[in-house]
Design a protein around this nucleic acid. Structure first.
Length: 139
DNA sequence: GCCAACGTTGGC
DNA sequence: GCCAACGTTGGC
């Protein structure tokens, strides 16, 4: 059981759109970065992830779970790119902003804080619990 | 809207 | 295999 973080600009694919997909979920397509893809290849069904809105909001807004393991990305005709399917689990009671993560010394090693460009990233169990606590949300 | 940081591409 | 040029991301 591993933890991850998925980034999306809310005007491209938002948490509300993800929620609207329900238990069916949606493929996390459009990733064109090898590191991000490799992270998705390691995901297993049942892994949990944060859903993060980048650019405008810069905050974690919800929790998702992996509901299909890595498969070819149907949005492009190029076998190099794969993606997983994710579905919404629950929203954060209060969103956790990037600023809050940067302000918390326990999250100094978090990829979100250190490598702002990676769009699919691993989260440690400790970081997972801290961010959930900051958002008053069950881990 | 700007621009720094980063990743990718392609010429050599 | 190197690296300059280019495109994109995402914080500010």
């Amino acid at each position: 059981m591993n933890y991850w973080l998925f980034k999306s600009e809310s005007d491209v694919w938002s948490w509300d759109q993800q929620v609207a997909k329900g238990d069916e979920g949606e493929q996390w397509d459009g990733v064109r970065n090898y590191q991000a893809r490799n992270n998705m290849r390691q995901m297993q069904i049942g892994d949990l992830g944060f859903f993060y809105h980048s650019r405008a909001e810069k905050e974690v807004v919800g929790i998702v779970t992996v509901c299909a393991e890595a498969h070819p990305d149907s949005s492009i005709d190029d076998p190099r790119w794969e993606c997983v399917d994710i579905k919404a689990v629950r929203p954060f009671i209060s969103p956790v902003t990037l600023a809050m993560c940067k302000d918390d010394p326990r999250l100094a090693e978090m990829v979100l804080v250190n490598n702002s460009r990676l769009s699919v990233q691993p989260v440690s169990k400790e970081e997972w619990e801290i961010v959930c606590e900051l958002g008053n949300t069950a881990p």
